[in-house]
């Protein structure tokens, strides 16, 4: 398999000028991306995560040709993005989670017609891609609705379809599930899986939702302070950080802390209790044990927050 995305020691340095007092100005260098190297083979689906301001967006902007790197070598499909931005644009698809590229006052259909003509998509390809997206993303009833009347989830689905009409080899998704309801999230994830499996589209996504990664990506990269601090499977990430999931248990009455092997009760509040257990192990035996030994009303499993996982990883285990 060939590498579709190649980064070798890529850097991005910003000059930040700040007011320091009435007249004085300080000049400061900010290394937003500080020597990142990685390869993404064709057809892979990769999660790219990190705390806010870690350099995620800057990396994506360099990969799409929006920003010129300050140093290092960068290739996408063999193209230097910032030098041949428009040539690259035909081969990549980009979805910015909170900025729609759809036409606000016009029906969804019109936005797609513009994409077709802007990217010069051949008629048969266009029809085939549109039909597939409409079917898989349940867009058929939305095509004639003005975008301003769509819900956030519907709009995101519309945006993802718009980014795929020209058969891009790479799809970049910046927070594709942010602010979406549960049903929309599920639809978006299922669709991305299908696209990746059937079209072989390489996908790079940033997210704050670990479930996205869990359900979609075998590989996850973590960036912090402009450096790549982890590159591997999600399991490995949990193992390194010893991160924990939480089982929230609602009992019929107030009881002393639950005691189940393989978990520890971290919080008790009236009839509600919180049990922590390693993210790498299954919830099933613990759930079974609780259901067995206690009068249960309701329970739910909470995934660890992405920030927590990263913080634990960076600080080596539980000590956060």
């Amino acid at each position: 398999m060939d590498d579709l995305i190649e980064l070798d020691g890529v850097e991005k340095v910003f000059q930040v000028r700040r007011r320091a007092g009435l007249m004085r100005r300080e000049r400061r260098e900010v290394r937003a991306v500080d020597g990142i190297s990685f390869r993404v083979p064709r057809g892979e689906m990769v999660g790219y995560i990190g705390p806010n301001g870690a350099g995620k967006s800057t990396t994506i902007k360099m990969l799409t040709g929006i920003l010129v790197p300050s140093g290092g070598r960068l290739r996408v499909a063999g193209i230097d993005p910032s030098r041949e931005r428009t040539r690259l644009a035909r081969r990549i698809g980009v979805v910015f989670g909170q900025r729609t590229t759809l036409w606000w006052d016009l029906p969804l259909r019109d936005s797609y017609a513009l994409v077709r003509r802007m990217y010069r998509i051949p008629d048969d390809r266009y029809r085939e891609n549109l039909d597939r997206c409409v079917e898989l993303l349940n867009l058929s009833e939305l095509l004639d609705v003005p975008v301003r009347q769509l819900s956030l989830g519907q709009r995101m689905r519309g945006d993802i379809a718009a980014a795929l009409l020209h058969d891009p080899e790479v799809l970049y998704l910046d927070e594709p599930t942010i602010g979406l309801d549960v049903v929309s999230k599920a639809k978006v994830r299922q669709f991305l899986r299908d696209v990746n499996a059937e079209q072989g589209t390489t996908v790079l996504l940033t997210t704050h939702d670990l479930t996205d990664i869990e359900l979609l990506c075998k590989r996850v990269m973590v960036i912090d302070h402009g450096r790549l601090v982890y590159d591997g499977g999600l399991d490995g990430l949990h193992a390194v950080g010893e991160s924990e999931r939480t089982l929230v248990v609602d009992l019929e009455q107030e009881l002393p802390p639950i005691e189940i092997p393989g978990s520890r009760t971290v919080r008790v509040e009236g009839p509600r209790q919180w049990l922590a257990f390693p993210a790498t192990s299954s919830a099933a035996p613990i759930v079974a044990a609780v259901a067995d030994g206690y009068p249960l009303v309701d329970l739910s499993v909470r995934e660890p927050e992405i920030e927590d996982v990263i913080a634990r990883m960076l600080h080596g285990g539980r000590g956060v």
């Binding site: 902007k61 799409t64 040709g65 929006i66 931005r85 428009t86 040539r87 644009a89 035909r90 990549i92 980009v94 910015f96 900025r99 590229t101 802007m118 990217y119």
Partner: peptide, 13 residues
């Protein structure tokens, strides 16, 4: 507002 970026990823000047 950052929408300049959405223009830069299209294959036209």
């Amino acid at each position: 507002d950052g929408t300049m970026d959405t223009l830069l990823v299209r294959p036209v000047p």
